[in-house]
Simulated scan of single mutants.
Amino acid sequence: MNKDRKRLVMEWYETYYDDIYRFILFMLGDKQCCEDFVHDTFVRAYTAYDRFDQRSNVKTWLFSIAKHLVLDEIRKRKRRRLFSMNLMERDIPSSFNVEQMIEHKEAVTHLLTAIQQLKPNYRIVILLKKVEECSTKEIAQILDWSEAKVRKTLSRAMKSLRKINGLEGGGHVEKTF
């Protein structure tokens, strides 16, 4: 059984590493510790494998584990501003359109900086919905919230993001994603 569990978790690692890495990187804005948190996510998945009851898909479950690790870290750091402008130096696999990212690099950098100023729940919802392109249902499963709460929190998060960016209409924020 342990051999099968190890093989399965390694398959998950190969499949979901980039998604989990990107999520943690955008949440913490700290490349230095990102690898450790990705590793910890898969170690916890391995040790908690018996509690994975298949109610959600594997990706949703892994994001849920990563979310708990990230929120614990954010609490430990007491909301210090961690975002580094060097974030855009490394190629990060993403669902972003590469041409759009190059064309709007300054806007994207400004947007990511603004996202780091949001409270953690807002940050999580925006990143899962707009960057990771999770459905409302998947986000609800990851966060253990109702779908209505996800929609309401996303709406509030986008409003806060527009306020940080000084944009009333907010069309520019959505276009950057």
Rank of each mutant, 00 (worst) to 15 (best):
G166H: 02
K31T: 06
I115N: 06
F96L: 12
S160M: 09
L8F: 08
A148E: 13
D19T: 01
S135Y: 00
K159Y: 09
E35S: 13
E138I: 03
K3H: 12
R162K: 14
L154H: 11
T109Y: 05
A107V: 05
W145F: 15
H104L: 08
Q141G: 02
M1L: 08
H68G: 14
S94R: 10
A48R: 14
S95K: 15
R162Q: 12
Y17D: 08
E132C: 05
K119H: 08
M85G: 07
V98C: 04
I142W: 01
Q32H: 09
I142R: 02
E106K: 13
A107Q: 14
L118N: 08
Y46A: 05
C134R: 09
V108G: 04
K105V: 06
E147T: 14
F96A: 10
E132A: 09
K67V: 02
D72S: 15
R22F: 03
N86M: 08
E35Y: 06
F23C: 08
I142T: 07
Q100W: 14
C33K: 09
T60R: 01
I126A: 00
F177M: 09
C34P: 06
A157Q: 04
L69S: 02
S94G: 15
D18L: 04
F177G: 03
G170H: 06
V131H: 10
D50Q: 12
M1P: 01
L112F: 15
N165S: 06
I124Y: 10
I102Y: 14
T113F: 14
V173T: 15
R44Y: 01
V9A: 10
K149H: 12
